Amino acid sequence: MNARVSINAQQRGSSPSKEASLRPTHIRKPLQLVATQGQVQIHTSTFRGSFSVVLSEAIRSAGLGSQVLIAQFLRGGVNQGPNGAINLCGRLEWLRPAIETCLQEKILEEHLSLKRKYEEKAIKELWEFCKSRLIEKKIDKIVLDEIGIAISLGFIEENDLIFMINNRPSSTDIILTGPSIPPKVIEMADQITELRCN
Rank of each mutant, 00 (worst) to 15 (best):
M1A: 05
G13P: 07
S15P: 00
S21M: 09
L22G: 13
H26D: 06
R28W: 07
L33F: 10
V34H: 12
G38L: 08
Q39H: 12
V40K: 04
V40A: 06
T46M: 04
F47V: 04
R48P: 05
S50K: 07
V53L: 15
V54G: 00
I59K: 03
G63C: 14
G65R: 03
S66N: 11
V68A: 09
V68I: 09
R75L: 09
Q80D: 07
Q80T: 06
A85Y: 02
I86H: 11
L88R: 07
W94G: 01
L95N: 00
A98G: 05
T101A: 13
E105D: 15
I107K: 08
H111M: 12
R116I: 13
Y118N: 03
E120V: 03
I123N: 01
I123R: 03
L126R: 08
L126A: 00
W127C: 00
E128P: 05
E128Y: 15
F129W: 15
K131P: 02
I135K: 14
I139R: 08
D140I: 03
K141Q: 13
V143Y: 00
D145R: 03
D145H: 01
D145K: 06
E146V: 03
A150Y: 00
F155M: 07
E158A: 12
I162Q: 05
I162T: 05
F163K: 15
I165S: 09
S170D: 15
T172H: 06
D173L: 02
K184T: 08
E187W: 09
A189V: 03
Q191G: 11
L195G: 04
R196F: 02
